[in-house]
């Protein structure tokens, strides 16, 4: 038990959340961060879906890593990703129909999320299943945190709601002449919000400051 949660393993879980965040530090998976962060709910479901695909996929690849022929390893990784994504999509359609309608094509687009392929290639191919699992959970959590922060601000400032609850209306700010910022709904603003997050993170985290 102690070995399973050794400090080294725990680092796999916590590192990607801040020091090695896939979005803000490695700058992977930006595309989906733009697409599904207009509202909080799809962002959360997307996070859970990516977590499922990345954690299970990492374990599968790590378990098979010694048998995968080197020359076709990318194809094998793709097949594993595609299978898991289709499964997630089918399960959402069967049991969470409303949510699956909202995410529509974006679930399918998890296949193209560079974080997943990146973790398979960089980590799962060279490590045992358990560390690979932690790495998968950690990276998707790091991805999810950014997604949720971005979605929070875009939904609040763009639509005046938080998880569909009309916050801005309840506090009566519209009476003062405040208007929702329609620009927040458009994809470019997601990029700017991500940029601000990177700026704040780099300002606070000294490890990320490059010496030149």
């Amino acid at each position: 038990m102690n070995e399973l949660f050794s400090p080294k393993n725990m680092k796999l879980l916590t590192n990607p959340i801040n020091d090695d965040n896939p979005i803000t530090v490695q700058v992977l998976g930006i595309c989906s961060a733009l697409a599904i962060t207009v509202k909080l709910e799809p962002a959360v479901v997307m996070t859970i879906s990516v977590m499922a695909v990345l954690a299970i996929g990492n374990v599968v690849i790590a378990a098979l890593r010694n048998t995968i022929p080197n020359r076709i390893r990318i194809i094998v990784q793709l097949v594993v990703i595609a299978t898991l994504v289709i499964l997630v999509d089918q399960i959402l359609k069967a049991f969470l129909y409303d949510v699956s309608k909202q995410l529509s094509v974006f679930v399918g687009l998890i296949i193209t999320n560079c974080i997943i392929m990146g973790r398979f290639e960089a980590f799962a191919m060279g490590n045992k299943p358990w560390p690979a699992f932690l790495d998968g959970v950690g990276n998707s959590a790091g991805y999810g945190i950014i997604l949720i922060i971005v979605a929070f601000f875009r939904e609040l400032l763009g639509s005046g709601t938080i998880w569909y609850y009309p916050v801005m209306e309840k506090i009566g700010i519209y009476k003062t002449g405040y208007v929702d910022n329609g620009l927040m709904i458009l994809p470019p603003m997601a990029l700017i919000v991500v940029g601000i997050i990177i700026w704040v993170q780099r300002g606070r985290n000294t490890k990320l400051i490059e010496s030149n």
Partner: peptide, 12 residues
């Protein structure tokens, strides 16, 4: 995949 599709089809 075919098993999953068949099993989930009635729900969908």
């Amino acid at each position: 995949l075919s098993f999953a599709t068949m099993a989930l089809k009635p729900y969908q």
